[in-house]
C-alpha cells in the first residue's frame, strides 16, 4: 500500500476514537491560569504522560494524544456543562478588637456582604475559620482560634442564618498573614475567615 492511501484510513480511525472513547478537555482556569492532568494509567498500563496543553482535547483510551480546540466553539452541550458549575466560593476576612471576640467596625461591611452571598446561593455552606497571632502556646491558640470562629458563627445564627449550613474550625497560628516571629502581637493575624460555598 502506498503512503498516500494510508492517510484516509488514519483520519477515519482518529475520528471514530473521538466519537466513541473516553476523552478529556483541558481548559484554562477561571483566572486564566495553567493547569494539567497526568495520565497515571491507560488500558491497565502505567503511564507518565502529562496533559498540559491548555484548550486541548485528548483521548483517554490508548496512548493519549492531544489536539488543540477553540473553547469558544465547544458544542452547546459542553458549554452548558461548564455554565452549570457552581459559583466559586467567596471568602471574607473579619478582624478582631484586641482582647475581645468583637469584630472591628471596618469588618462590618464584609459581614453584610457574606449575609447576602449566603442568601443568594441555594444549598449554601458556610465555613468559619479562626486564626490567632503568635502570642501564647500553639495549643492555646488552637483553642482561642476555635472560640473566635464559634463567636462569628453564633453572630450569623443570631442574624437568622440556619446553623445546619455552617461549621467552625480553628487553625491557631498556622498561616500567619503577618509573618511574625513567635510571641508577637499582631492585629492582622487576629482574624476569622468566612467562606461561603
Amino acid at each position: 500500500m502506498s503512503p498516500l492511501r494510508l492517510v484516509p484510513v488514519l483520519i477515519v480511525s482518529v475520528l471514530s476514537a473521538c466519537a466513541t472513547g473516553p476523552s478529556l478537555i483541558l481548559l484554562t482556569s477561571e483566572e486564566g491560569k495553567q493547569g494539567s492532568v497526568a495520565v497515571l494509567e491507560h488500558d491497565g498500563i502505567r503511564s507518565d504522560d502529562v496533559i498540559d496543553e491548555l484548550n486541548s482535547w485528548t483521548n483517554l483510551s490508548g496512548r493519549p494524544h492531544s489536539s488543540s480546540i477553540d473553547p469558544a466553539k465547544l458544542d452547546t452541550r459542553l458549554r452548558r456543562l461548564l455554565e452549570d458549575l457552581p459559583p466559586a466560593p467567596v471568602y471574607r476576612t473579619l478582624y478582631f478588637l484586641e482582647g475581645t471576640t468583637r469584630i472591628t467596625p471596618d469588618s462590618v461591611p464584609n459581614l453584610e456582604f457574606l449575609k447576602s452571598e449566603i442568601a443568594r446561593r441555594p444549598g449554601a455552606e458556610v465555613l468559619v475559620t479562626g486564626y490567632t497571632d503568635t502570642v501564647g502556646s500553639s495549643d492555646d491558640n488552637d483553642e482561642l482560634s476555635q472560640r473566635r470562629a464559634e463567636e462569628i458563627l453564633k453572630g450569623l445564627v443570631e442574624q437568622g442564618i440556619a446553623i445546619s449550613m455552617m461549621s467552625a474550625v480553628g487553625r491557631g497560628e498556622r498561616e500567619l498573614l503577618d509573618k511574625t516571629r513567635d510571641n508577637v502581637s499582631s492585629a492582622l493575624n487576629r482574624r476569622v475567615v468566612v467562606t461561603v460555598r
Partner: peptide, 21 residues
C-alpha cells in the same frame, strides 16, 4: 484522581471536562 473505564488521571489543577460515552 479521576478514574474512567480506560484510564486513571491525576488532577494537577483547575478546569477540565471528562466524557465517557
Amino acid at each position: 484522581k479521576v478514574r474512567t473505564p480506560t484510564s486513571l488521571l491525576g488532577v494537577r489543577g483547575t478546569r477540565f471536562i471528562v466524557e465517557v460515552p
